[in-house]
Protein backbone atom coordinates (compact mmCIF):
# COMPACT_ATOMS: atom_id res chain seq x y z
CA UNK A 1 0.00 0.00 0.00
CA UNK A 2 1.59 3.23 -1.16
CA UNK A 3 0.22 6.64 -0.26
CA UNK A 4 0.67 9.65 -2.47
CA UNK A 5 0.71 12.95 -0.62
CA UNK A 6 1.70 16.47 -1.50
CA UNK A 7 0.68 20.08 -1.71
CA UNK A 8 -2.25 20.93 -3.93
CA UNK A 9 -1.37 21.40 -7.56
CA UNK A 10 2.02 19.73 -7.61
CA UNK A 11 1.03 17.01 -10.02
CA UNK A 12 0.14 14.25 -7.58
CA UNK A 13 -2.57 13.00 -9.86
CA UNK A 14 -0.26 13.18 -12.85
CA UNK A 15 2.24 11.01 -10.99
CA UNK A 16 -0.59 8.74 -9.98
CA UNK A 17 -1.75 8.32 -13.54
CA UNK A 18 1.77 7.87 -14.86
CA UNK A 19 2.42 5.08 -12.37
CA UNK A 20 -0.88 3.28 -12.63
CA UNK A 21 -1.65 3.92 -16.25
CA UNK A 22 -5.06 4.96 -15.11
CA UNK A 23 -6.71 8.03 -16.36
CA UNK A 24 -8.00 9.74 -13.30
CA UNK A 25 -9.05 13.24 -14.03
CA UNK A 26 -6.21 15.70 -13.60
CA UNK A 27 -6.68 19.41 -13.67
CA UNK A 28 -5.08 22.62 -12.69
CA UNK A 29 -7.17 23.70 -9.78
CA UNK A 30 -6.98 23.13 -6.09
CA UNK A 31 -9.16 20.63 -4.36
CA UNK A 32 -9.49 18.42 -7.39
CA UNK A 33 -8.92 15.18 -5.56
CA UNK A 34 -11.63 15.34 -2.96
CA UNK A 35 -12.10 11.68 -2.31
CA UNK A 36 -9.03 9.58 -2.47
CA UNK A 37 -8.44 7.70 -5.66
CA UNK A 38 -6.90 4.26 -5.74
CA UNK A 39 -5.08 2.31 -8.40
CA UNK A 40 -2.42 -0.31 -8.70
CA UNK A 41 0.73 -1.14 -10.61
CA UNK A 42 3.02 -4.12 -10.71
CA UNK A 43 6.78 -3.95 -10.26
CA UNK A 44 9.02 -7.00 -10.04
CA UNK A 45 6.15 -9.27 -9.17
CA UNK A 46 4.78 -7.12 -6.38
CA UNK A 47 1.45 -5.41 -6.66
CA UNK A 48 1.50 -1.87 -5.36
CA UNK A 49 -1.76 -0.27 -4.36
CA UNK A 50 -1.47 3.44 -4.83
CA UNK A 51 -3.68 5.80 -2.88
CA UNK A 52 -3.93 9.37 -4.10
CA UNK A 53 -4.55 11.55 -1.06
CA UNK A 54 -6.09 15.00 -1.28
CA UNK A 55 -3.56 17.80 -1.59
CA UNK A 56 -2.73 19.68 1.58
CA UNK A 57 -0.27 22.34 2.62
CA UNK A 58 0.10 20.98 6.11
CA UNK A 59 -1.17 18.30 8.42
CA UNK A 60 -1.67 20.58 11.39
CA UNK A 61 -4.75 22.63 10.74
CA UNK A 62 -8.16 21.18 10.62
CA UNK A 63 -9.62 21.10 7.17
CA UNK A 64 -11.28 17.88 6.08
CA UNK A 65 -8.62 17.17 3.47
CA UNK A 66 -5.84 17.51 5.98
CA UNK A 67 -7.55 15.20 8.37
CA UNK A 68 -8.15 12.60 5.70
CA UNK A 69 -4.52 12.72 4.65
CA UNK A 70 -3.20 12.73 8.19
CA UNK A 71 -5.38 9.91 9.45
CA UNK A 72 -4.42 7.81 6.50
CA UNK A 73 -0.70 8.37 6.98
CA UNK A 74 -0.86 7.78 10.70
CA UNK A 75 -3.41 5.04 11.17
CA UNK A 76 -3.59 3.56 7.67
CA UNK A 77 0.10 2.75 7.94
CA UNK A 78 1.04 2.65 4.24
CA UNK A 79 4.15 0.66 3.30
CA UNK A 80 5.60 3.77 1.79
CA UNK A 81 4.52 7.33 1.27
CA UNK A 82 5.45 9.30 -1.79
CA UNK A 83 5.42 13.04 -1.19
CA UNK A 84 5.14 14.92 -4.42
CA UNK A 85 6.69 18.37 -4.19
CA UNK A 86 6.81 21.23 -6.63
CA UNK A 87 10.41 21.97 -7.59
CA UNK A 88 9.56 25.59 -8.32
CA UNK A 89 8.48 26.39 -4.78
CA UNK A 90 10.31 23.86 -2.70
CA UNK A 91 10.29 25.79 0.53
CA UNK A 92 6.53 25.84 0.90
CA UNK A 93 6.39 22.17 -0.05
CA UNK A 94 9.03 21.20 2.46
CA UNK A 95 6.74 22.18 5.30
CA UNK A 96 4.52 19.28 4.42
CA UNK A 97 7.46 16.95 3.88
CA UNK A 98 8.78 17.65 7.36
CA UNK A 99 5.37 17.05 8.85
CA UNK A 100 4.98 13.75 7.04
CA UNK A 101 8.46 12.70 8.13
CA UNK A 102 7.33 13.22 11.70
CA UNK A 103 4.60 10.67 11.22
CA UNK A 104 6.29 8.03 9.12
CA UNK A 105 9.86 7.28 8.12
CA UNK A 106 8.99 5.25 5.05
CA UNK A 107 8.97 8.14 2.67
CA UNK A 108 10.11 8.86 -0.86
CA UNK A 109 10.24 12.49 -1.88
CA UNK A 110 9.37 13.06 -5.51
CA UNK A 111 10.55 16.47 -6.72
CA UNK A 112 8.11 16.95 -9.56
CA UNK A 113 7.83 19.65 -12.21
CA UNK A 114 11.59 19.61 -12.56
CA UNK A 115 11.17 20.66 -16.19
CA UNK A 116 9.19 23.69 -15.12
CA UNK A 117 11.90 24.56 -12.62
CA UNK A 118 14.59 24.30 -15.25
CA UNK A 119 12.63 26.67 -17.42
CA UNK A 120 12.61 29.14 -14.56
CA UNK A 121 16.33 28.61 -13.97
CA UNK A 122 15.82 26.97 -10.62
CA UNK A 123 18.05 24.06 -9.78
CA UNK A 124 17.36 21.70 -6.95
CA UNK A 125 20.24 19.72 -5.54
CA UNK A 126 18.42 16.45 -4.97
CA UNK A 127 21.49 14.70 -3.58
CA UNK A 128 21.95 17.32 -0.89
CA UNK A 129 18.23 17.21 -0.16
CA UNK A 130 18.41 13.45 0.15
CA UNK A 131 21.24 13.77 2.63
CA UNK A 132 19.44 16.33 4.75
CA UNK A 133 16.04 14.67 4.76
CA UNK A 134 17.45 11.18 5.17
CA UNK A 135 14.99 9.67 2.70
CA UNK A 136 15.27 8.96 -1.04
CA UNK A 137 14.68 11.99 -3.25
CA UNK A 138 13.81 11.53 -6.92
CA UNK A 139 13.52 14.29 -9.50
CA UNK A 140 10.68 13.74 -11.95
CA UNK A 141 8.72 15.38 -14.70
CA UNK A 142 5.70 13.15 -14.51
CA UNK A 143 4.02 14.77 -17.48
CA UNK A 144 6.82 13.49 -19.74
CA UNK A 145 7.43 10.32 -17.71
CA UNK A 146 10.93 11.48 -16.79
CA UNK A 147 12.35 9.93 -13.64
CA UNK A 148 9.47 7.52 -13.15
CA UNK A 149 11.65 4.40 -13.18
CA UNK A 150 13.85 5.85 -10.49
CA UNK A 151 10.74 6.69 -8.51
CA UNK A 152 9.40 3.14 -8.84
CA UNK A 153 12.75 1.74 -7.69
CA UNK A 154 12.91 4.07 -4.73
CA UNK A 155 9.37 3.13 -3.73
CA UNK A 156 10.12 -0.57 -3.85
CA UNK A 157 13.32 -0.10 -1.84
CA UNK A 158 11.50 1.77 0.90
CA UNK A 159 8.36 -0.36 0.92
CA UNK A 160 10.30 -3.60 1.14
CA UNK A 161 12.66 -2.31 3.81
CA UNK A 162 15.67 -2.70 1.58
CA UNK A 163 16.55 0.84 2.38
CA UNK A 164 16.53 2.07 5.93
CA UNK A 165 15.69 5.72 6.11
CA UNK A 166 16.94 8.17 8.63
CA UNK A 167 14.39 10.94 8.54
CA UNK A 168 15.12 14.51 9.45
CA UNK A 169 13.67 15.45 12.82
CA UNK A 170 12.41 18.94 13.46
CA UNK A 171 13.73 20.22 16.77
CA UNK A 172 11.37 22.31 18.81
CA UNK A 173 11.94 24.73 21.62
CA UNK A 174 13.52 23.40 24.80
CA UNK A 175 10.24 23.59 26.66
CA UNK A 176 8.46 21.47 24.11
CA UNK A 177 11.33 19.03 23.74
CA UNK A 178 11.37 18.57 27.51
CA UNK A 179 7.67 17.84 27.55
CA UNK A 180 8.04 15.43 24.66
CA UNK A 181 10.82 13.52 26.34
CA UNK A 182 8.62 13.12 29.40
CA UNK A 183 5.55 11.71 27.71
CA UNK A 184 7.05 9.96 24.72
CA UNK A 185 8.12 6.89 26.74
CA UNK A 186 4.70 6.36 28.26
CA UNK A 187 3.05 6.73 24.89
CA UNK A 188 5.47 4.19 23.53
CA UNK A 189 4.36 1.83 26.26
CA UNK A 190 0.81 2.19 25.03
CA UNK A 191 1.22 2.06 21.28
CA UNK A 192 4.51 0.18 20.92
CA UNK A 193 6.18 0.54 17.55
CA UNK A 194 2.91 0.64 15.67
CA UNK A 195 2.51 4.38 15.75
CA UNK A 196 5.05 7.13 15.96
CA UNK A 197 5.18 8.03 19.62
CA UNK A 198 7.08 11.30 19.21
CA UNK A 199 4.47 12.59 16.84
CA UNK A 200 1.64 11.40 19.06
CA UNK A 201 3.30 13.12 21.98
CA UNK A 202 3.31 16.37 20.07
CA UNK A 203 -0.28 16.03 19.02
CA UNK A 204 -1.41 15.16 22.51
CA UNK A 205 0.50 18.08 23.95
CA UNK A 206 -1.31 20.18 21.43
CA UNK A 207 -4.57 18.69 22.77
CA UNK A 208 -5.59 17.54 19.32
CA UNK A 209 -9.07 16.29 20.02
CA UNK A 210 -9.37 14.22 16.84
CA UNK A 211 -6.23 12.30 17.73
CA UNK A 212 -7.43 11.71 21.27
CA UNK A 213 -10.72 10.37 20.00
CA UNK A 214 -8.92 8.13 17.56
CA UNK A 215 -6.66 6.77 20.28
CA UNK A 216 -9.62 6.15 22.54
CA UNK A 217 -11.09 4.03 19.78
CA UNK A 218 -7.86 2.13 19.23
CA UNK A 219 -6.98 1.67 22.87
CA UNK A 220 -10.17 1.52 24.87
CA UNK A 221 -9.92 1.98 28.62
CA UNK A 222 -10.13 -1.20 30.61
CA UNK A 223 -13.58 -0.48 31.98
CA UNK A 224 -14.97 -0.01 28.51
CA UNK A 225 -13.23 -3.10 27.19
CA UNK A 226 -16.18 -5.32 27.85
CA UNK A 227 -18.40 -3.40 25.52
CA UNK A 228 -15.79 -3.23 22.83
CA UNK A 229 -14.99 -6.95 22.72
CA UNK A 230 -15.63 -8.35 19.32
CA UNK A 231 -15.15 -4.99 17.75
CA UNK A 232 -13.18 -4.52 14.60
CA UNK A 233 -10.20 -3.03 16.40
CA UNK A 234 -7.74 -5.80 15.82
CA UNK A 235 -9.28 -7.16 12.70
Amino acid sequence: MIALAGNPNTGKSTVFNALTGLNQHTGNWPGKTVLRAEGKYINQGYVYNLVDLPGTYSLLANSVEEQVARDYLCFGRPDATVIVVDATCLERNLNLVLQVLEITSKVVVCVNLIDEARRKNITVNTEALEKILGVPVVATAARDRIGLNELINAISNVANDRLVTNPYVVRYTEQIEAAISKIEPIIKELVGEKLNSRWLALRLLDKDQTIITKLEELYPQRDSLVTKVGGELWA
Partner: peptide, 20 residues
Protein backbone atom coordinates in the same frame (compact mmCIF):
# COMPACT_ATOMS: atom_id res chain seq x y z
CA UNK B 1 5.77 27.33 18.21
CA UNK B 2 5.49 24.03 16.38
CA UNK B 3 4.52 25.70 13.14
CA UNK B 4 7.37 28.15 13.54
CA UNK B 5 9.94 25.44 14.06
CA UNK B 6 8.74 23.55 11.03
CA UNK B 7 8.75 26.63 8.83
CA UNK B 8 12.22 27.62 9.93
CA UNK B 9 13.53 24.15 9.24
CA UNK B 10 11.91 24.13 5.82
CA UNK B 11 13.39 27.51 5.05
CA UNK B 12 16.91 26.53 5.99
CA UNK B 13 16.72 23.28 4.05
CA UNK B 14 15.37 25.05 1.00
CA UNK B 15 18.19 27.57 1.16
CA UNK B 16 20.70 24.78 1.17
CA UNK B 17 19.39 22.89 -1.81
CA UNK B 18 17.62 25.35 -4.07
CA UNK B 19 19.58 27.52 -6.40
CA UNK B 20 17.72 30.28 -8.16
Amino acid sequence: SIVNSIYNSAESIAQQVVNQ
